[in-house]
Design a protein around this nucleic acid. Structure first.
Length: 276
DNA sequence: AGGCAGGCTTTTA
DNA sequence: TAAAAGCCTGCC
């Protein structure tokens, strides 16, 4: 059991509902069961700014501290937005503070966001769990409960069309296969894209069959931690049309456009209340 | 060349 | 029945 404090933004519920992660599930009380790679922990906010994770300090430092992106000050990110100049984004930041951009596994994000197209979040989660059960390593968490690690590219590349279809992937089966093949064969090196420039990484991702601009930007932001990536989906498209008819000031918010995107996405989808 | 309509699996509300 | 953190193909 490891406990830590932070004065910075960290709202587990908001993160769980933010749409960037699909393997956070509510356990008892305000506790979340989080699967990340081959790890599974229970996380809980035990008091104002106080948190508890059922792992060793070594595991926290090595795995969960980077995962939660605790070394970036999100208060500082929010403070850049001036209420007088940009009331919509300022309100979004204030309402949705506590969201952070997790450092998730690039491969898992690639598959997850390929699956996400034309699905709602419960359906996305179900497919990911089925895929993990089908091809992921079976493990046991600290409470003795079974969980399945997200499958490797090799294991997914080895699944038959029928097996993928059984995970309710529908027409996305061939996309997932193509991605697994590209990563397993080495023609796509996701690790190398972490340090690559935004444009280069985006182009490499879009080279995969089934990956368009929107999915590629989600992988950039949530899998490769390119915090300036700005996925435009149907919700953000509406935000841009309604709130920024004269254009959105990307330059001004660089290199954190992706973080602001998350605030706006959550704010708008939750039914925003703009108080000027 | 670049833009647009139509189709695609399945689940959810 | 429509919509869901879309993308591909074919047509113009």
């Amino acid at each position: 059991m490891y406990c830590f404090r932070t004065e910075d933004d960290l709202d587990l519920l908001k993160i769980a509902e933010s749409g960037q992660c699909f393997r956070w599930n509510k356990a008892e009380g305000h506790c979340f069961r989080v699967i990340h790679g081959g790890h599974c922990v229970y996380m809980e906010e035990t008091g104002e700014g106080e948190y508890r994770i059922d792992c060793s300090e070594e595991e926290f430092q090595a795995v969960w501290r980077p995962y939660l992106d605790l070394d970036l000050d999100y208060r500082k990110v929010r403070r850049r937005v001036k209420k007088t100049k940009d009331p919509f984004l300022a309100a979004a930041c204030e309402m949705e503070k506590g969201i952070r951009i997790l450092r998730q596994d690039p491969w898992e994000m690639l598959v997850s966001f390929i699956i996400s197209q034309n699905k709602n979040i419960p359906a996305i989660k179900k497919s990911i769990e089925m895929l993990s059960e089908m091809a992921g390593e079976r493990k046991t968490d600290r409470r003795g409960e079974t969980f399945y690690a997200f499958p490797t590219p090799e294991r997914i590349a080895g699944l038959s069309g029928q097996e993928l279809s059984d995970c309710r992937l529908g027409y996305r089966c061939k996309y997932v296969s193509a991605a697994a093949g590209a990563v397993f064969s080495g023609s796509l090196d996701l690790g190398k894209l972490i340090a690559a420039g935004d444009e280069e990484a985006l182009a490499a991702l879009k080279g995969i069959y089934g990956v368009g601009t929107k999915v590629a930007n989600c992988v950039l932001l949530f899998g490769l931690h390119h915090l300036n990536a700005f996925p435009v989906d149907v919700w953000i498209r509406k935000v841009l049309e309604e709130q920024y008819p004269g254009g959105y000031p990307y330059e001004e918010y660089s290199p954190w456009n992706g973080i602001y995107q998350q605030y706006m996405f959550a704010y708008y989808r939750n039914g925003y209340i703009l108080t000027v």
